[in-house]
Amino acid sequence: MSEPQELSAIARGWWWARDYVYAGIRQLAIVVQGWNPPARWRRGREDLPEVLLLPGIYEHWSFLRPLGDALNGAGYRVRVVHGMGTNRRGIAETAKRLGRAIERRPAPDAGRVIVAHSKGGLVAKQLLVSGADAAADGPHGLLGLVAVATPFAGSRMARLILDPSVRALLPSDETIVLLGRAASVNARIVSVFGRFDPHIPDGSLLEGATNIRVPVSGHFRILGAVETHRAVLEGVARLDGRSPTDQPGSPG
Score class of each variant (00 low, 15 high):
residue 109 D to G: 03
residue 5 Q to R: 09
residue 46 E to P: 05
residue 180 G to N: 03
residue 210 T to D: 15
residue 146 V to E: 01
residue 103 E to K: 11
residue 161 I to S: 04
residue 73 G to A: 12
residue 238 R to E: 02
residue 66 P to C: 07
residue 24 G to I: 07
residue 214 V to R: 06
residue 252 G to Y: 05
residue 144 G to H: 02
residue 41 W to T: 06
residue 103 E to C: 10
residue 97 R to G: 15
residue 59 E to K: 01
residue 114 I to V: 14
residue 237 A to L: 04
residue 11 A to F: 00
residue 114 I to S: 06
residue 99 G to Q: 03
residue 13 G to M: 07
residue 128 L to Q: 03
residue 208 G to I: 06
residue 121 G to W: 05
residue 98 L to S: 04
residue 217 S to Q: 11
residue 170 L to T: 13
residue 235 G to K: 01
residue 114 I to P: 02
residue 246 D to S: 04
residue 239 L to W: 00
residue 100 R to P: 03
residue 2 S to T: 15
residue 185 V to E: 13
residue 51 V to C: 13
residue 140 H to Y: 10
residue 219 H to C: 11
residue 105 R to C: 12
residue 94 T to H: 06
residue 111 G to K: 02
residue 15 W to R: 10
residue 252 G to K: 15
residue 236 V to N: 09
residue 213 R to T: 14
residue 219 H to W: 11
residue 139 P to N: 07
residue 8 S to F: 00
residue 160 L to D: 04
residue 141 G to S: 10
residue 77 R to Q: 07
residue 29 A to P: 09
residue 62 S to I: 14
residue 104 R to P: 06
residue 5 Q to H: 05
residue 134 A to Y: 06
residue 163 D to V: 09
residue 75 G to A: 05
residue 237 A to Q: 03
residue 140 H to F: 12
residue 119 K to C: 04
residue 123 V to Q: 04
residue 136 A to F: 01
residue 136 A to N: 01
residue 37 P to R: 03
residue 29 A to F: 05
residue 176 I to A: 01
residue 7 L to I: 07
residue 21 V to W: 14
residue 216 V to R: 00
residue 192 V to P: 03
residue 180 G to T: 06
residue 76 Y to I: 15
residue 42 R to L: 11
residue 201 P to S: 08
residue 244 P to K: 10
residue 47 D to W: 02
residue 189 I to N: 09
residue 190 V to M: 14
residue 60 H to C: 02
residue 155 S to Y: 00
residue 186 N to Y: 14
residue 81 V to Q: 01
residue 160 L to F: 13
residue 117 H to E: 03
residue 122 L to A: 11
residue 7 L to K: 12
residue 146 V to Q: 07
residue 235 G to I: 03
residue 79 R to S: 08
residue 31 V to D: 05
residue 205 L to E: 15
residue 102 I to Y: 08
residue 193 F to E: 15
residue 42 R to H: 02
residue 44 G to Q: 02
residue 138 G to C: 10
residue 137 D to E: 02
residue 64 L to H: 10
residue 97 R to W: 10
residue 93 E to R: 13
residue 96 K to D: 15
residue 72 N to Y: 03
residue 161 I to A: 07
residue 119 K to P: 01
residue 43 R to P: 00
residue 13 G to H: 01
residue 207 E to L: 10
residue 91 I to E: 11
residue 90 G to K: 15
residue 9 A to C: 07
residue 140 H to V: 11
residue 168 A to S: 14
residue 163 D to K: 04
residue 181 R to D: 09
residue 200 I to Y: 04
residue 118 S to V: 13
residue 89 R to Y: 08
residue 125 K to T: 04
residue 113 V to G: 05
residue 148 V to L: 12
residue 241 G to V: 06
